[in-house]
C-alpha cells in the first residue's frame, strides 16, 4: 500500500512542480553585515531573496542569496561552514539577535521552516574583540584553539585503545565527561554572552578531561593555564547569566562552569600558577 502511494506522489513530478509545495516558498528580507576586511568598517546591507523553500537549511538560503549576488556581479557574502551536519562547529551566525538563530542547534541545522514568508532576518557575525571579523560574517576563532593549546590536552602516550576494564570510570563520570566533550567549539557561547566570555567553552574542556583518569596528571595546571589564556585573549568574565548554555547547540550545562571554578580554586590552593 505504502509503495503505491509513494509511486503516486513521485508520478506528480518534482516538488518544484507541485502547486501545493510552491505556495510554501518564501520571500525574505535579509539585513546582512557586510565588512570588506578586518580593518574596514562594516554595515548592515538589505537584500531580498525569493523562492526560499521551507526545507532549505539556513546556509542553503544564504547560498541562494550568494548565487543572486554572483549573477548580479556583486561580491558574495562570506560565511564559515564545513560539514553542514551540525558536528564540525564551523558555521555560526547571529540570526535575529540569537546565536545560531531561534532553535538551539547549529546554523546549518536550522531550517527555513522556522521562519515565515515575508520575515525580515538580521544576520551578524559573532561579536567579540577576541573574534576579529575576517570578512562579512566570517570571524577568526583561533583564540579558542589557543585556549585548548594552553592545557586542553593530555600528554600521556595513549597508543592503541586500551582494555576497557583496566581503568574503570564510573558511569556518572563518563556520561558527564561525554556531555562536555560534545562541545564543537563553534563560539556561540561567546557570541551570546553579554560579557563576551568564553567561560562555557573552557569549562567544557576542563570538565571533559578533568572527569576522566587520563586527565588527572595535568588537572591543576590545565585549569589555571586555560583560564589565564582566555583572559589573555581578551574574553570577558563570567557572571553566570546563562545565555551561553541557552545558545549552545550541544546544550553544555552551567554545571561545567561550577566545576571549572571548583578545579580552579583547588588548583590555586595546591600552588598551581599559570605559565607566563
Amino acid at each position: 500500500m505504502t509503495a503505491t502511494r509513494e509511486g503516486a506522489t513521485f508520478a506528480t513530478g518534482t516538488a518544484g512542480d507541485d502547486p501545493a509545495m510552491e505556495k510554501h516558498d518564501m520571500t525574505l528580507t535579509l539585513r546582512v553585515w557586510r565588512q570588506k576586511g578586518p580593518q574596514h568598517k562594516g554595515k548592515m546591507v538589505t537584500y531580498r531573496v525569493t523562492d526560499i523553500s521551507p526545507d532549505m537549511s539556513f546556509l542553503e538560503m544564504l547560498d541562494v542569496l550568494n548565487e543572486q549576488l554572483i549573477l548580479a556581479g556583486d561580491d558574495p557574502v562570506v560565511f564559515d561552514h564545513d560539514c553542514r551536519e551540525g558536528i564540525c562547529g564551523s558555521c555560526g551566525l547571529m540570526i535575529n539577535g540569537q546565536a545560531h538563530g531561534p532553535e538551539q542547534t547549529t546554523t546549518c541545522q536550522l531550517h527555513m521552516r522556522k521562519f515565515k514568508d515575508g520575515d525580515s532576518i538580521d544576520i551578524e557575525p559573532w561579536r567579540a574583540s577576541a573574534f576579529p571579523v575576517i570578512k562579512d560574517l566570517s570571524v577568526d576563532r583561533r583564540a579558542l584553539d589557543r585556549i585548548v593549546q594552553a592545557g586542553g590536552y593530555i600528554s600521556a602516550p595513549t597508543g592503541t585503545a586500551p582494555e576497557a576494564h583496566s581503568i574503570l570510570v564510573a558511569k556518572k563520570d563518563s556520561d558527564a565527561a561525554f556531555d562536555a566533550a560534545t562541545c564543537i567549539g563553534c563560539g556561540a557561547c561567546v557570541a551570546a554572552c553579554p560579557n563576551a566570555s568564553s567561560m562555557l567553552f573552557t569549562a567544557a574542556k576542563v570538565t571533559h578531561l578533568g572527569l576522566l583518569p587520563q586527565g588527572q596528571p595535568e588537572r591543576n595546571d590545565r585549569v589555571v593555564n586555560m583560564v589565564a589564556q582566555q583572559d589573555r585573549e581578551g574574553f570577558g568574565g563570567c557572571s553566570n547569566i546563562g545565555e551561553c548554555s541557552a545558545a549552545c547547540p550541544k546544550g553544555i550545562s552551567m554545571e561545567t562552569i561550577s566545576r571549572l571554578n571548583h578545579d580552579l580554586l583547588g588548583a590555586l590552593r595546591a600552588g598551581a600558577r599559570p605559565k607566563s
Binding site: M44, A130, A192, S239, N240, E243
Partner: peptide
Amino acid sequence: SLWRQARRARPQRYVTKKPAAQSYASRTM
C-alpha cells in the same frame, strides 16, 4: 573590573540582540 573587561571584550555591539535565558535580576546587577 568585570564591567570594564566585558566592555573591552565586545567593543562593537550587536545591531540586534535578543536575550534567551537571562533573568531580570541578572540584567540589573
